[in-house]
Design a protein around this nucleic acid. Sequence first.
DNA 1: TACCGTCCCGGTATACGCAT
DNA 2: ATGCGTATACCGGGACGGTA
Length: 473
Amino acid sequence: MAAPRWSQCAPTAGSTGELSAVTLDDALTDVRIAFLQVEFAIKLLSYCEQGDIDPAVLDTHQVVLLEQGNLGFPAGNFSAREDIIRAASVAVSLALAGSALALDKAWETAGIPRDPSSPDGAVRLRTLVHMVRCAYAHGVADPRWEVRGNYRQVLEVDLPTAPLRLDLRALDSQSFDFVQLGGHAKWFEIRDQSIIALTESNSVASTRPKSAPKRLAIASDVLEVRSSSPRGHPAITQPDMAVLFDLLDGWRHLPSYRLEPRADAMFGLFMPDALDRHLAPRGITVNPLLIPEFPLGQDDTRRSDKADFFAVSRDRRHAFLVELKTDMNSLRDTQEDYLHRAVERGMASLLCDIRSMAKTKNSRARRKYFHLLKAVAELELMILPVELEDRIYDSSQGVYDCIDRIRLPSALPDIEVIHVLPAAVKGMDCIDFEGFAAVVEEHGKIGERFAASLRNWSAIKAGDRWPDTAPAK
DNA sequence: TACCGTCCCGGTATACGCAT
DNA sequence: ATGCGTATACCGGGACGGTA
């Protein structure tokens, strides 16, 4: 039984019940979203038709936790391939209906009138969109043309590929089908021409105040997550990255909780920028492609020690072994030893070791090493034989010879060790958490929140008393 | 390919010695 | 008795080598 978190978005101020003015910018954004939804629904249908969806995974019993009453869905409604394809087809129809509603709303917002006999091409295009919208308005599952009064005439619309001529009198009461417009591609052409016309009208009428950057509204009834005190359990309201950091801030104080493996992806996300800033005085910038858990071959075994991250400067003259600690007490001399031994051995030796490790007899492990080899090759530190991928995945015959044919470039970077630590240590090349936070906080809301946690982690040791509960001095 | 024993990792838990 | 620092054992997930 799963409790999914919905993160889907529903467009427009209008759809969330606000009656305040919807600007044309808003309406055009909704058009974009609606047509993206058509694209998604079509891709989903193709995916389903290929049989790539596993009903055992999709069609489980699910309960959605909602503030105003939970929703339970049983397993079984989508257990057959045909059920899934039928549902995906309906999703395409619904998305197309949504696209008609959104496009009509944009025309309405622009204040363009409807008139099938207007000499103005934009007005006739707007009228066509309205007629499609009306067809869906009278039945999403079975859209029908409904043509009344002044609209009962021939409507001609100029389009770049070919003019469209519709006898609305004849279409009245008939089932709507995109074939009548000339196919779905024509509908996308109608969208494109509408956007051009509406954008022009918007620039003419630009005296209206611009809308604020659009925030995609979230259905108010849906499970949300709200941040809470770091020690408290978060009340579940709106999904929010801040809650993730609240959890880390709080949980790192609990027994047996290891922060580093949980937070290393966040460090990895910002590590290239942090390295760039740290290395800026030397004029060095790094390739943003990092390799985590970079293996460093041991002297007398085929095993490896690991550097937390491996980075290379853009000019490929310097490589960096980055060691991350979230707790100063975790610094170990043995680790310093193998890192500095790697520096002394040099890049060629490290790469040769990786090549040897990739020749593991375990085929599953070999596949993982292949991904490592590809990452190293992407950093231009290895040249892989073209047939290597086939040898790894299809025919393992000759795979060891193939790995032996991996070549190294003649010029290789030197190696340095950089530590990322809560506090800098004298004699070590360090980025302390304050320095890391200064970089991170420049990257939007998530960065700001991560920076706050970094400062928390460096100021308060795991297990320490919280400052706000300590007696005033 | 499966299985088993061993090692590695970051971090925690515990034992120990020493100072107060 | 208590606090502190250091060394070492341990944890769980994963990698690795050897064997059948």
